[in-house]
Nucleic acid binder design. Structure first.
Lengths: 341, 341
DNA sequence: GCATTTTATGAAAACATTTGCATTACTATT
DNA sequence: AATAGTAATGCAAATGTTTTCATAAAATGC
C-alpha cells in the first residue's frame, strides 16, 4: 500500500482487477473473439483504471511479431529521403507497424552495424536503400531469414526484392534530353560513387547515352560534388572559369542542380540562356523554383508507399517471395533547359 | 539434425557451443570484466559461428533498458525536422540508443496514439516536438514516469524539460528587423496555428513587436498558408493583387518565405527591390538561395544534438530532473530585405 | 601448508506474456 | 433426459534472458 515503489501495472494486475486469469486478459488482446464480450468490457475497464500498457517485448519473446520495421537510410537530412521515409512510415503504420530508423552516413560498414542493431530489436523486417551492400550484410540477412526489401533502386536481377527506379535509365533520360535539344558540350556533376550505387548508375547511364551519340566529355567538365547546394555551386564555378564552358549540365540530383544553377548565375550567366541544367529526382520544391527545374522525376512518395505495402505484405504472409517493382521515370521539362539554336 | 526447422541460435545454443553455461554467456555480454578472457574468446567464437544475435526483447523483460528512444514529429518530410531528426539520431546513437520514430501529421490526437505505441515498445524515453500537447498525453507521460523532453520550443515555465528556441522571440526578431529597416506596411504569412504552438508563438511575437511600434496590420495582409512553397506562392499573390501592397513580409518559416519570394517575382516585382522578405528557421539551403534569404536562425542541428544528449543523460542517470535549454536566436541578414529609403 | 580472499562459473528463480490442454458450464439435438 | 457439441475460462509450461546465490578453484598471506 505504500506508494513508495508503485509497481507498474502488468497483465496479472489487470487480471486481478478484472477478476479473471492472466490468460483471459492476454486473449482479450490477441484473440478478442474468444472471450465473452462482458468479460472483455470488465478487462478494458481494469486496463483503463490501472493505466496498463502492453509489453511488446514480452510478446516478441514468444516468437510473435514485434510490429516494428527497420529502415536504414544513408541520411535522414535530405529532401528526397525525408519524402520516402515519410511515405514508407505512413504505409507501414497503416498495417500497424512502427518504424525503427537508423542512418549510416553513406558508410556500408556502419550500415552493417545498424542492421545488427535492428536485429537485436527483433524487427519484423528491414528496408535498405539501394542494392549495393557489403557481403557481410547480405550474409547476415540471408542467415537470419530476415524479410527485407531494397528501396530506391531497381534491378531486374537483384538478389533482394526491390522497389525503385532504374537509375541508369534516369541518367540516360537526363542526358538524352540535353542531347536531343542539340547540346554537345555537356558537363556532369555527380557525387562520389563510393558505396552509392544510385549515383554510380546514374552517372554510367548518362555517360553511356552521351557516348552513344558520339559525343565526348572533357575531363574538366566532370566534377564531383556531394549533395550540397554550396559545394555544387563551387564545383560548377570551376567548370565555368575554364576558357571553354559547357552549354549544358547533367546533375546527379536536384540539390546539385539547384547549386549548379546558382553557380551559373553567380558568374553572371543565365539559366537556361547560357547554360541548360537538368537534375534527377524532382524533389519537393523543384517545381516551384524560378525557373522551374527540368528534371527526371523519381516518384519518391510512390516508392515509399509501395515498399511499405510490399514489405508488410511479405511479413504478414510469412512468405519470402521475390518481387521487383520498377517505377516509371519521366523527364519533366520545365524552365532550366532549352534547345540549342 | 534435419535442417527443416533450423532454430535460430539462442543464448543456450551459444553456451553449449562454448561449453559454458548460459549465465556465463550473458555475463560475457553485460559484464565482460567478470569473465575469464579465454572463456570470453571461446564464447565470441561460438557467437560468430552460430550467427547469434542478442534479443533485446528478452532483456527488456527484465526491466533493463531497451536502448531505444522514441521521437514523435509532426512530419518527417520537412527540411527542418529532417535536420533535427538527423542530429538527434546521431546524438543518441553516440550513447548506444536506437531511434524509434513516428509522425502524426499535426494531429495531437494521433500524437497520443503514437506515444502509447512507443510505450508498448518500452522505449526508454520520448521526445516530442513543441510544448503543446493533449491533456491525455501529459497524463500518460506523468503516469508512466516516462523520461521525456520537448524539442524545438523553449519556455521558462514548461512542465516538461525542453530544448529549443523561444518562438515568440523569433517572431519578434523577424518583425523588428523589418521595422528597424523602416518598413511600416508589413504583411504576414503564417501556417494555421491549430495544434502548432511554434507557429502561434511566432505569429504572436511578430504582431506584438509590430504593435509596439504603433503599426497596424491590415486584415488583407494577413494570410494563412501551410509549409508549402506552392501554396505560399499563391497566398502572397492574393496580397499583392490588392491595390495596396505591403513593402515587407514576415513569413512563418523559410519554406513559406521561399514561396513568397517566388510569388513576388512571378508578379514581376523584385525582392528586395519592391518587397522585402524575411523567414524564420534558416534551413539548409536558405544561405544558398539567390539572393540569400534573410532569416531568424534557429539552430536545428544544435537542438537535436543537445536534446539527444540531455535525454540520454536523463535516462542513464535515472533521475527526472527538470531542465530547460534555450538556444540563441539571431537574425541573419542576407539579400532578401533592405532598408526602406 | 593452512586459512582467507578473490576469481570464475553454474543452477535456478525471476521477468511479462502467450498458448496448448484441460475443465466447466451452457446450448442444441435426439 | 441423455448425449454431443460449443463457448469461455483457467492452469501450467514455455519463451530468452538476467541476476542472485552458491560453489569450486585459484591466488594470496602468514
Amino acid at each position: 500500500m505504500t506508494d513508495k515503489k508503485v509497481k507498474k501495472a502488468d497483465i496479472v494486475a489487470v487480471a486481478n482487477a478484472a477478476k479473471v486469469s492472466a490468460s483471459t486478459v492476454s486473449r482479450a488482446f490477441n484473440h478478442p473473439d474468444l472471450v465473452n464480450p462482458a468479460t472483455r468490457k470488465r478487462i478494458n475497464r481494469a486496463v483503463e483504471k490501472l493505466g496498463y500498457i502492453r509489453n511488446r517485448a514480452a510478446q516478441a519473446i514468444h516468437g510473435r511479431r514485434n510490429a516494428t520495421i527497420g529502415l536504414i537510410v544513408p541520411t535522414i537530412n535530405h529532401a528526397i529521403f525525408a519524402e520516402v521515409i515519410q511515405s514508407f512510415s505512413d504505409a507501414i503504420d497503416e498495417a500497424g507497424f512502427t518504424l525503427l530508423i537508423a542512418s549510416h552516413g553513406y558508410s556500408l560498414e556502419r550500415e552493417y552495424d545498424m542492421i545488427r542493431k535492428l536485429m537485436e530489436h527483433r524487427v519484423d523486417g528491414i528496408a535498405l536503400v539501394g542494392l549495393e551492400h557489403s557481403e557481410a550484410t547480405f550474409r547476415l540477412l540471408r542467415q537470419q531469414e530476415m524479410p527485407c526489401i531494397a528501396i530506391w533502386n531497381y534491378s531486374g536481377t537483384s538478389d533482394m526484392p526491390c522497389v525503385g527506379a532504374d537509375n541508369r535509365e534516369a541518367g540516360r533520360l537526363a542526358a538524352r534530353h540535353l542531347l536531343q535539344a542539340g547540346h554537345r558540350d555537356i558537363g556532369l556533376i555527380f557525387p562520389s560513387i563510393e558505396g552509392n550505387d544510385r549515383a554510380r548508375q546514374r552517372l554510367e547511364g548518362a555517360m553511356e547515352e552521351i557516348r552513344t551519340h558520339g559525343v565526348e566529355v572533357r575531363d574538366a567538365w566532370r566534377q564531383e560534388s556531394p549533395y550540397s547546394i554550396t559545394l555544387a555551386k563551387q564545383a560548377v564555378r570551376g567548370m565555368l572559369d575554364s576558357d571553354q564552358r559547357p552549354t549544358a549540365l547533367v546533375c546527379g540530383n536536384d540539390v546539385i542542380a539547384q547549386g549548379a544553377i546558382f553557380g551559373v548565375q553567380s558568374r553572371g550567366l543565365s539559366v537556361p540562356g547560357d547554360v541548360s541544367v537538368i537534375g534527377i529526382g524532382d524533389f519537393n520544391g523543384s517545381l516551384d523554383m524560378e525557373p522551374g527545374l527540368t528534371t527526371v522525376r523519381i516518384p519518391a512518395e510512390d516508392i515509399g508507399k509501395v515498399a511499405g505495402q510490399r514489405l508488410t505484405g511479405l511479413i504478414l504472409s510469412e512468405t519470402r517471395e521475390m518481387f521487383r517493382y520498377r517505377c516509371d521515370l519521366n523527364c519533366i521539362v520545365r524552365g532550366t533547359t532549352r534547345p540549342l539554336t
